[in-house]
């Protein structure tokens, strides 16, 4: 792979006494969607949180566009152009939708063309622009969470299970928005449990098991090879 936007080299991360990541090697290509797959508890969320600096990797290197960000504070990583959408959405419930979006635009006022694009992707956000984010439905909160990352152009998007627990109609909206983001040439590392969404969006895929990447390659290859899916993910499930 030539000149990836993000590279993880032998990353180990512990949370308290638990050894969650045990030597993750991962490359995220530019202008492509990389799916991070695997069953629950294998370290996908910890991988994203290690990249953004919430959990510190105690061994290994995390390199963003040639810059070592392993020891850089989280806000500096974010300002270096990494947009993070956490699994729990992490919206600011007491602030309005507008205030949530304004806060997310750290480099200055929101670009109106970009905001129009976000509204096109997530129309309810325009409707509830002045409403408190805490009053939104679950799906709308997830839209806001992704919209906050999309409100500015980022070098890399880290998105953790954006369709988790959402109604099918909202899942379609999410998938459409992510497809548009991808069409703009964004580099995305996406954790997703919904395999049909993963298959539709992913260019490349990495499968994790027990805190390591156990397979990486073209998403197409994984999507069309049932025995490979069975071996990588089915075997893991049986093992646990």
């Amino acid at each position: 792979m030539s000149d990836p936007i993000l590279r993880l080299e032998g990353v180990y991360t512990n949370i308290a006494q638990y050894h969650i990541l045990q030597g993750v090697d991962l490359e995220v290509p530019r202008a492509a969607v990389t799916m991070l797959l695997g069953r629950n508890g294998v370290g996908k969320t910890t991988t994203l949180r290690s990249i953004i600096g919430h959990w510190r990797a105690h061994q290994g290197r995390i390199v963003l566009d040639g810059q070592d960000i392993t020891r850089i504070p989280t806000p500096a990583i974010a300002r270096a152009g990494v947009g993070f959408v956490p699994e729990d959405m992490g919206i600011f419930a007491n602030l309005t939708v507008e205030e949530n979006m304004v806060l997310a635009a750290v480099s200055g006022p929101i670009n109106s063309a970009r905001l129009d694009w976000v509204f096109q992707a997530f129309p309810p956000l325009k409707t509830f622009w002045k409403s408190e984010a805490g009053n939104l439905s679950g799906g709308q909160k997830q839209m806001l969470s992704i919209a906050r990352a999309m409100v500015e152009e980022r070098r890399l998007y880290l998105i953790d299970e954006p369709t988790k627990g959402l109604a099918p109609a909202i899942v379609s909206t999410m998938a459409r928005a992510l497809r548009e983001l991808k069409a703009q040439g964004a580099s995305i590392l996406l954790v997703e449990q919904n395999f049909s969404v993963a298959r539709a969006l992913g260019d490349t895929a990495c499968v994790m098991d027990d805190g390591r990447i156990v397979w990486s390659g073209e998403m197409r290859e994984l999507a069309t090879d049932a025995s490979l899916q069975e071996r990588l993910m089915g075997l893991s499930m049986e093992a646990h």
Binding site: H54, P75, F92, V106, R148
Partner: peptide
């Protein structure tokens, strides 16, 4: 409300 989220957006 969420100090980690504020950091992940870019605020110290």
């Amino acid at each position: 409300e969420n100090d980690f989220r504020a950091e992940a957006i870019g605020y110290r």
